[in-house]
């Protein structure tokens, strides 16, 4: 290259000097691609690693159980019918408590989103309730709702309730105001505006709150069952833990993980159906 770049004809001579090359691409990245095999593969590799390590002896068999033994324990659990005796009460508690908490949370969250008085009165209360480890309140709930199912439902419901409230009122706050003003300008009733504009508009936020709420519900489910239940996944894990029966412990933990994945998939399914209008 000579001093042509300084001349006004620099561009043209650069074009004709024969060193044409494509403009480098700089636009990629920042958009995670989907890959349906990566997730299961990580699981499989991790399990295979533990299995091989234990069999070869470079992982102490005190630290982890053999994955194949865990599987055998699980199969045994299924064949003896014990699986259902633990799973059915757990799922019932999860569903009843989770549903109560989610519905109450959406209701209270909507009220906070719509009414200044509810906001002023309830937001500090929710803020005070949110960081309290709900499990610490279990003894109190046992007195209030009895040692049976009632206290477990209440605990799980309370755990789901607080994140749902926060997610719902945030979502209601974020509903497009112009849509609400449109509803008012067409003389829609208050109930119609809430049902047809506010709640559908808040639905994306409510559903992402539901993910968090239900995950917390699973945690509290297990905690409640550890403190006082004959049957349930939590009771099963506690019993296995106190006997240092690692195979059963891990079988129980695996059931919880599957429950978590299933819940998340269920919410994703609902999202796909309900939020089809989003591109």
């Amino acid at each position: 290259m000579t001093d042509t770049t300084h001349s006004p004809h620099g561009a043209r001579s650069a074009q004709t000097d024969g060193s044409a090359r494509p403009v480098p691409f700089r636009g990629g990245g920042f958009r995670p691609a989907t890959n349906r095999w990566a997730g299961p593969l990580v699981f499989a590799l991790l399990i295979a690693f533990v299995e091989v390590g234990l069999r070869a002896g470079w992982i102490s068999n005190l630290t982890l159980p053999l994955p194949s033994d865990v599987l055998a324990t699980f199969v045994q659990l299924y064949e003896t019918g014990l699986l259902w005796r633990h799973l059915v009460p757990s799922l019932t508690r999860f569903m009843v408590g989770g549903t109560l908490g989610a519905l109450a949370g959406i209701g209270v969250g909507t009220l906070i989103g719509l009414f200044g008085l509810a906001r002023a009165g309830l937001v500090p209360m929710v803020a005070a309730l949110f960081p309290v480890p709900k499990i610490a309140l279990l003894p109190l709930f046992v007195i209030w709702f009895g040692i049976g199912e009632g206290s477990k439902y209440a605990l799980i419901a309370l755990g789901t309730f607080t994140p749902m409230v926060v997610a719902t009122y945030g979502a209601v706050d974020n509903v497009d105001r112009t849509l609400i003003r449109m509803g008012q300008s067409f003389g829609l009733s208050w109930g119609s505006i809430v049902r047809k504009i506010v709640l559908p508009g808040a639905m994306p936020g409510i559903l992402s709150g539901l993910r968090i709420g239900l995950a917390i519900a699973i945690i509290l489910l297990v905690a409640a069952e550890m403190l006082g239940a004959q049957y349930g996944i939590g009771a099963y894990i506690l019993e296995a833990g106190s006997l240092y029966d690692l195979e059963r412990l891990f079988a129980g933990v695996a059931i919880l993980s599957v429950l978590g994945v299933a819940t998340s998939a269920a919410v994703a399914w609902v999202e796909r159906r309900v939020l089809r209008w989003r591109s």
């Binding site: 449109m182 067409f186 508009g201 639905m203 209008w277």
Partner: peptide, 13 residues
Amino acid sequence: LTYVFQDFALLPW
């Protein structure tokens, strides 16, 4: 008295 808004104000759902 009925409005037509600049940003359309259609319910996306």
